[in-house]
């Protein structure tokens, strides 16, 4: 029980500020990997995904938990530290899970043509995250970037929807990177 009450930010204002700067830089420069600290969430949640939830979610952001992440410990931890209502994939503003558990990713909100910002942000837990693999180009990238994406087809299909589409934050242990819908992805 006590594990649920601990593991949040000890000093929320500066810690969430540092975490958000990492998220901002990550979203602005797709493929760039940042290290974040401050959360100690229960398993199976990684530090980076925990920090992302603490920084971005609250009672106003419907959250979907997929696969192994939809467990009692995590539900309780999120209820206490974020207060985000847990919902189905179709209603979610944020979704958390391993890539295969989030499939089919076409079930998530891609926004409205008049309001493309009303789309889901997927927090994808990765077994590893390195600056190798798929080739990324687009806004935020000077020439090209590389990132170990779980696949390329789904991101290429998502890019075709621009300005609609979902955005992705990839997390692994203490590290995170982002892949906004604006990025063009090519298989290596």
């Amino acid at each position: 029980m006590t594990a649920i009450l601990t593991g949040g930010f000890a000093d929320p204002a500066p810690q969430s500020a540092h975490a958000f700067r990492a998220l901002l830089e990550a979203m602005a420069r797709p493929g760039r990997i940042h290290t974040v600290l401050g959360a100690e969430p229960p398993a199976p949640l990684s530090v980076a995904a925990g920090v992302t939830l603490l920084t971005l979610t609250d009672a106003t952001t419907p959250l979907h938990l997929a696969g192994a992440y939809d467990c009692a410990d995590l539900r309780s931890w999120i209820a206490f530290h974020c207060g985000a209502p847990l919902v189905s994939a179709q209603e979610a503003q944020f979704a958390l899970g391993a890539w295969e558990d989030l499939h089919p990713v076409t079930q998530f909100k891609i926004g409205d043509p008049a309001y493309p910002d009303r789309s889901a942000t997927l927090i994808v837990e990765m077994p590893e995250l390195t600056a190798t693999g798929a080739r990324l180009t687009g806004p935020g990238i000077a020439a090209e970037a590389r990132l170990s994406l779980p696949e390329t087809a789904a991101f290429q299909a998502n890019r075709k929807l621009f300005p609609l589409g979902f955005d992705v934050i990839l997390t692994c242990d203490k590290r995170l990177a982002a892949l906004p819908r604006s990025t063009k992805v090519e298989a290596n």
């Binding site: 969430s16 979203m27 979610t57 609250d58 910002d117 604006s182």
Partner: peptide, 16 residues
């Protein structure tokens, strides 16, 4: 309030 602003900023970066 900051979380609300931060979510908007990330979406703004995603749709330049």
């Amino acid at each position: 309030t900051k979380r609300m602003l931060r979510r908007a900023l990330l979406k703004a970066l995603a749709v330049p």
